[in-house]
Design a binder for these strands. Structure first.
Lengths: 111, 111
DNA sequence: TGGACGTATGCGGATGTGCGAATAAGCGAA
DNA sequence: TTCGCTTATTCGCACATCCGCATACGTCCA
C-alpha cells in the first residue's frame, strides 16, 4: 500500500476521523445503527440535552455520515452507511487486543 | 448489537479515535504500516520537524498503537497492530461511497 | 569524558472544539 | 393565524490540542 497523498489524508480526517472523535457522537452512531431515531428520542435514550444532540447530528450530517428526513414535526436521522459502526467495532477489537498484550507484559514484569 | 456502556465508549475514544484524529498521525500510521522506521526517517519522509514527529509518536505509544525499540542511538517505531491501517482504509472506502452518493444527488437536482 | 548524533520535553501562543442557557425557526392541527 | 411540539442556532466561556522554538536528555564512540 503506497503512502496516501496528503489531500486524501485531509479528506479522511475532516470527514470520518473528526466525526468519531467525540464520545457522544460515538454513542449517537451506535444508537442510529440500532435503528433510525429522531432527535428527542436520541436525547432521551442517551440522556443528553436536545441542543447537544442536535449539534452533533448537524456535524455528522455535514460529514455525510447520517441523513435526515422529516417525519411530521420530527426529523428522523439514520446512518448513511452502517459500516461506520463496523469500523468502530474493529477499533474496539484492536483496542482489546493491545490492552491484553499490555497486561501480559505487566504480568511478566511482576514475576 | 446492544448499545455500548459509556465506559467502553470512553476507552474507544481515548485510545483509538483520538489517535487517528490528526492528519499527521494518520500519515505516520501509514508510513509505519509500510515499514518500521525511526524518528528522523519519519520526519524526513513526511517533511515534518523532528519534535513534531516525536510528540505524535509519544501520543501513539501512550495509546498503545505503536511500540518503540531502541536501536543504537535511534528509536525504531512500529505498529502494535497493523489492522489500524485496515480501519483507516475502511473509513476511506465509506467516505468514497458517501461522496459518490452525494454527487449523484447533486446531479439529479441539476437535471 | 567529551563530542556527535538522535530523541524527548517545556514553554507560550494560536487555534479549535464542546457545552449551557436562551432563543429562534419549522411544522402541523385547530 | 395561533398554539404546541420539535428541531436548529447563537453567544460566551472553558478547555484541549497543536505547533515552533529552544533545549534537555540518551546513547555511542573516540
Amino acid at each position: 500500500m503506497p503512502l496516501l497523498p496528503l489531500q486524501e489524508i485531509q479528506l479522511l480526517h475532516n470527514y470520518v476521523c473528526q466525526s468519531v472523535n467525540d464520545p457522544k457522537r460515538i454513542q449517537i452512531l451506535y444508537a442510529l445503527y440500532d435503528e433510525p431515531r429522531h432527535v428527542t428520542a436520541l436525547a432521551e435514550l442517551l440522556d443528553m440535552p436536545q441542543p447537544t444532540v442536535s449539534r452533533h447530528l448537524a456535524l455528522l450530517r455535514q460529514r455525510l455520515l447520517v441523513t435526515a428526513e422529516r417525519s411530521g414535526p420530527a426529523v428522523v436521522y439514520r446512518l448513511s452507511d452502517p459500516r461506520i459502526v463496523d469500523v468502530l467495532e474493529q477499533m474496539r477489537s484492536i483496542l482489546r487486543e493491545v490492552l491484553e498484550r499490555q497486561a501480559e507484559v505487566l504480568d511478566e514484569q511482576s514475576e
